[in-house]
Simulated assay, not measured.
Amino acid sequence: MSIKDIQEEIIDEFSMFDDWMQRYEYMIELGKSLPLIEEQYKTDENIIKGCQSKVWVHAELNDGKLIFTADSDAIITKGIIAILIRTFSNQKPSDIIAADTEFIDEIGLKEHLSPTRANGLVSMIKQLKLYAIAYQTQLN
């Protein structure tokens, strides 16, 4: 499934909810399905800078595709990273680098987050793309 297809799926899922309380609850549920990072990767190098809560992300290349795992000490943040990982994990680094993240605006996520969480969201996207760039250079 392409990144665009996954983003469309997420937009559809979020459009089923009438209000933001339901959407937050859904994000918390998504956080519970997050592919969890192994304890050995919960290191300072894997912490995303610019997040108010702690978010760890680990990436590895498997058969030309990036596989992300993550965790957070905050339930909403865990939901946010779960959405991003669902979108970008198991994709080629070049596709991750080229992908836009307009779907975040379409589901209204950024405008319903506190400024610090919104900054954290931007930092998470940036970090996932940086991993993709690093692995892409290894592939070339």
Rank of each mutant, 00 (worst) to 15 (best):
E9Y: 11
L130P: 00
Y24F: 14
Y26Q: 08
S114K: 13
Q136K: 06
D18C: 08
Y24S: 14
L139W: 01
D19G: 15
Q136F: 06
Q136P: 03
Q52C: 01
P35Y: 11
D5G: 07
T43Y: 09
G64H: 06
K49L: 13
A99W: 01
M1I: 06
E45H: 10
I75D: 13
E102I: 01
Y26F: 15
D18A: 15
T69R: 14
D5A: 15
T116F: 01
R86M: 08
I125C: 09
W20K: 05
L121D: 13
K32S: 08
E13Y: 04
I85G: 10
S114C: 06
N140F: 06
P35I: 04
D5V: 06
N62R: 13
I10K: 00
T43K: 13
E38L: 14
D73Q: 09
P93G: 11
K110T: 13
Y24I: 12
D95L: 04
E29K: 10
D100W: 00
E9D: 14
M27L: 15
T116L: 06
N119C: 08
I67P: 02
D100T: 11
S2A: 05
G50N: 08
T116D: 12
L61R: 01
I104N: 03
I76F: 03
A134E: 10
R23A: 05
H58S: 13
L34W: 09
G79M: 03
A74N: 11
E45Q: 12
G120A: 09
D19E: 07
N46C: 13
N46K: 10
K129P: 01
L66T: 04
Q7W: 01
Q22L: 12
D63E: 09
R86K: 14
T116G: 05
D44M: 04
Q127P: 00
N140C: 03
N62A: 13
T77K: 00
L139C: 02
F14V: 04
I125Y: 03
D95Y: 03
I80G: 04
K4C: 07
I133D: 06
F103D: 02
M124H: 05
I10G: 07
I6S: 10
I76E: 04
D71S: 13
N140G: 11
I80F: 15
I85R: 04
D18P: 01
D105K: 09
T101Q: 01
M27K: 08
Q91E: 14
S94C: 02
M124I: 05
N62Q: 12
E45C: 04
E29L: 12
I75G: 02
I28H: 11
P115K: 03
Q136G: 05
L121P: 06
A118W: 11
I85F: 03
K126Y: 11
Q52Y: 06
L139F: 07
D5F: 07
I125D: 07
I37Q: 09
T69S: 15
N90R: 13
K65N: 07
S33Y: 00
F88K: 06
S2D: 11
K92A: 15
Y131D: 00
G64Q: 05
T101Y: 14
W20S: 04
S72A: 14
I81E: 07
W20G: 03
L36P: 06
E9T: 12
H112G: 11
H58L: 02
R23Q: 09
D5C: 07
K126V: 00
N46T: 09
T77S: 15
F68A: 12
N62P: 04
K92N: 10
K110E: 08
A134Y: 03
Q127A: 14
A70Q: 12
Q138L: 12
K65M: 05
M124A: 08
E60D: 11
G64T: 05
A74F: 00
